[in-house]
């Protein structure tokens, strides 16, 4: 099995602070981490390798700093990692990101499975995984919460969907996008960390890939962000303090009345 896990480096959202004046994100002192949902994808790939043999390759597109995320993936147990980094990739929307990543998957060659986190916690689009599948013309199963079987060139997976679960059988090579329930990510080991530090990470630019230049980066991106604003906080919370029996009763009465006014009961 040859498995590729595309990962994204994202700001640690626990600590995202917004500048109230400018409405922009304060990036100073904000740690960059592997997109949390990608950890489940890495873990699933490692577990598949343990059962079926093969190798796991982590892949990321971004500035040079993104190699930190790839080294972390190697520390967890990925066999190798590739960084796509080139000014030509700058400004990519999900279409152009998918285009570059699929070109890297083609270059890696003989890949059986691409496993992605369902979405990244910063952009929250979830569009790149299915996009890679469409570019490669491979089948895709999204929202995978369990790998039920993997044999004879097919994967049977369970998808978490509205109102229940869909079980599908997918022919390989294929793309899977996974949700948290699919695995429990392991922690990097000391040995892994040492290996990751020593690992020589190849960096591929546009010239290393079989791509058309006008489909890369901002040029290849159909969408444009035209405005970023801070959402208006229209809510002003009416806070009621309940410390004893009578204040509790009064607070509950107020809430019930409020819900009635809004015709919610």
């Amino acid at each position: 099995m040859r498995l590729v896990v595309p990962i994204k480096q994202v700001p640690e959202t626990d600590n995202v602070k917004m500048d109230a004046e400018t409405g922009t994100m304060v990036r100073e002192g904000v740690e960059a981490i592997i997109n949390p949902l990608d950890l489940y994808a890495i873990e699933l790939a490692l577990a598949i390798r343990e059962d079926h043999g093969g190798e796991v390759i982590a892949l990321s597109m971004g500035p040079a700093q993104a190699s930190t995320a790839l080294r972390e993936a190697v520390a967890m147990g990925c066999d190798s990692a590739v960084l796509l980094s080139d000014r030509a990739f700058a400004g990519s929307d999900t279409w152009a990101t998918g285009y570059a990543l699929q070109a890297a998957v083609r270059k890696l060659g003989d890949v059986d499975l691409v496993i992605c986190g369902e979405r990244a916690t910063d952009g929250e689009t979830g569009q790149v995984g299915p996009g890679i599948a469409a570019f490669l013309d491979w089948p895709v199963a999204t929202y995978v919460c369990r790998l039920e079987a993997l044999a004879d060139g097919r994967a049977r997976v369970r998808r978490l969907v509205e109102g229940g679960w869909q079980v599908v059988d997918v022919q390989l090579p294929a793309v899977l996008t996974v949700v948290k329930e699919v695995s429990t990510p392991r922690l990097p080991t000391l040995r892994g960390k040492l290996r990751a530090k020593a690992e020589d990470l190849p960096v591929w630019g546009a010239a290393d890939l079989d791509v058309e230049g006008d489909k890369l980066g901002l040029n290849g991106s159909p969408t444009r962000v035209v405005k970023i604003e801070r959402p208006k906080v229209a809510r002003e919370c009416r806070k009621l303090v309940a410390t004893d029996e009578s204040t509790t009763a009064a607070a509950i009465e107020a809430v019930v009345e409020f819900l009635q006014q809004r015709e919610l009961l």
């Binding site: 303090v241 309940a242 509790t248 607070a251 809430v255």
Partner: peptide, 8 residues
Amino acid sequence: VADIGIVG
């Protein structure tokens, strides 16, 4: 983000 809340 709440419209109404009870502290307790």
